[in-house]
Design a binder for these strands. Sequence first.
DNA 1: CTCCCTGCAAACTATTTGCACCGTC
DNA 2: GACGGTGCAAATAGTTTGCAGGGAG
Lengths: 149, 149
Amino acid sequence: MIDAIRRAGHKITPQRLAIVGILAESQGHPSVEDIYEQVVEKFPTISLATVYRNIILVKSLGQVLELGFADGSNRYDGHKPYPHPHVVCVRCRKIIDPHLSSLTDMTREVSRETGFEIITHRLDFFGLCPECGSEKAEDLGEKVAGGRH
Amino acid sequence: MIDAIRRAGHKITPQRLAIVGILAESQGHPSVEDIYEQVVEKFPTISLATVYRNIILVKSLGQVLELGFADGSNRYDGHKPYPHPHVVCVRCRKIIDPHLSSLTDMTREVSRETGFEIITHRLDFFGLCPECGSEKAEDLGEKVAGGRH
DNA sequence: CTCCCTGCAAACTATTTGCACCGTC
DNA sequence: GACGGTGCAAATAGTTTGCAGGGAG
């Protein structure tokens, strides 16, 4: 990832290094805030703008997958920066990657039926993870799958 | 849809009637702006706030499906207000509903593997529709599948 | 030594909210 | 007539941008 940045002619600053490091290594699909909070530990004066700018950079290099959700929250995956399904806990916001077959078949089916040239896709499942599922549930329904902001 | 609103104890105003009418009848997955522009024709003094408030209302009654996208845009479907796949043209933003089987199988598979209790899902394909695909393509890649704003 | 990058603050955009008046029931 | 709904304007939240100084190459 660092190489990709260097190859694209961008400088390697300590802040940038820290930010892309978190993106590249984390398994947990961090949010902008998550990243910011971790980086502030090392660089107390860093600004959110710098985090945003660097995310935009690696995103433009195809080194990270951005997952925008209906409620406006964004999560990032630098570990598998290509489209793949996600399973999201609507209670604790945990995100994991399920192993799924038959998605390419589905893409072909869609392409045949609609005449679209499919470029990418997005598949998310929303529900309760085992930990949250055993607790009592209330405010779940609403803002789950759909409209951002 | 009007009945659902009345049953929930809300009044039927002319503005409300116009807004939900557009949501219920349109096949085209309109945006807030689309709805506003149509309603302004009849009610020149209507405000965006009223459109938002009424969308929130019908959404809370489960009468409309909200599709939030990575770039922050929202689209609404009052025709099929339950989760279903969409195919989105990244050029002209047209949205259509493909007919797809095997999604329920997939949900079961995810549930079994992850231990999640799946509540809902979201499946979108992004690409070029037949009309846009025949033109030349440039600024497509970036903000396609992912992070809303 | 030259730019790119950073930090700060202000700008932006989409949505939400407070408030006074209005219209449905 | 009461109370929910509307229109307006201001508030909000998340992200982006302009600018001046600082550091990587």
